[in-house]
Design a protein around this nucleic acid. Sequence first.
RNA 1: UGACACCGGUUUGC
DNA 2: GCAAACCGGTGTCA
Lengths: 180, 180
Amino acid sequence: MTITAAADGSSLGNPGPAGWAWYVSPDCWDAGGWPEGTNNMGELTAVLRLLEATAAAGLADEPLRILADSQYAINCITQWMPGWKRRGWRKADGKPVANRPILEALDVAMRGRNVTFEWVRGHAGHDMNEAADQRARAVSEAFQAGRPIPSGPGFGVQAPATEVIPSEEEPATEQEQTLF
Amino acid sequence: MTITAAADGSSLGNPGPAGWAWYVSPDCWDAGGWPEGTNNMGELTAVLRLLEATAAAGLADEPLRILADSQYAINCITQWMPGWKRRGWRKADGKPVANRPILEALDVAMRGRNVTFEWVRGHAGHDMNEAADQRARAVSEAFQAGRPIPSGPGFGVQAPATEVIPSEEEPATEQEQTLF
RNA sequence: UGACACCGGUUUGC
DNA sequence: GCAAACCGGTGTCA
């Protein structure tokens, strides 16, 4: 079955405390970041980590549909990379391409994968995009505030095989909070 | 007294709707353009019109200091023109020089003038350069939108010799607008 | 190969 | 309203 995911990045001050996140569902997402980074590092890394997480979960053969609001990230992967590799990672103006290490990792991670990119306009109310946006920004804010960095379950957490009856002291909403 | 002026050009799309402007002070500037032109036509023409306007105002003997962000325009006039004239308006690669008509007019307009060029980096917060930039772009945008083309008072408008008392219906700000 | 300018686009932010 | 991160292009010359 096709997996649909949103990927997004964030950087407070840009450059500044930065984050990335990908989101498939409330219990399938991940996030991370750096104390200092750019918006575009975040956008690119969100896609990279999504590719890696799906592969690690044995889902490399499933078609993957990626929603992203960054034309930069989409074009890097689908349009500009072939030319950059051919021309020794130089841009049109002859200067070196930015974010090359992430781009090269992306190039490897894309190999043999069945991926479709879909551009969604930012802050236009797309639910999955907003979910990823929120989580990426939460990481940036955590770095800025010196708080613990939130991360998600990735593809590792499955519904428990045996029924678990939650106790009265632990309602469902609280359980979700511990995932951060 | 030395006259200091900024000269700048604009071209939306390049080539596209284009404009030129020179600026000395809020009530001494001019602008114009074409429905289709290049950035460099604008840069060159801004200097040409400034030369012509100062001469027409009887200021040809005053030292003129021109601020421009186009190294192309400055070098055309101060460095490359002599060689081009000597070699029949051919570039180093043997091909014909671009914008030759404007360049030849510039050559005539420079004759006997005391002109200093000063390069200022674009969009670096130089007030006069920004004033010229804005006016050149306003012309480009007017051409693009099919609106009336703005122009300035040039050197023609002086403080009135006799005191004029504005009527209540015509405040000073309105009077300035009619100069466009 | 270099330089300057002129633009077009998306995101990230203040 | 401002700026930064990123890309693409053209206009011009040495």
